[in-house]
Amino acid sequence: MFPFIFEWIWDMSHIVFMGGLWYALNIIGIGMTYCIIKAVVDTYQGKGGHHHDEACECGCDNHH
């Protein structure tokens, strides 16, 4: 899984397979990090209280 584990060989199959894996993991990780940080910033900016009546642009229909 990591280049420092002794089974690892710098060959095409490892690069392609692990490349795909880390690509997916990075998208998931970066995506979630972005969502969480943005949610923290939004919250400090006062967004997302349950006082507003307008429809939420995210499409969720149970917002107040």
Binding site: A39, T43, K47, G48
Partner: peptide, 29 residues
């Protein structure tokens, strides 16, 4: 997070909203 009570918490609402916004990226992955 869209549960009625959870949604009242601003952070949860924002998180849920943000996740919805980039859901296409997750779905593609």
């Amino acid at each position: 997070l869209e549960n009625r009570q959870a949604d009242k918490v601003p952070f949860f609402h924002n998180l849920s909203h943000n996740m919805h916004e980039i859901m296409a990226v997750f779905a593609a992955t």
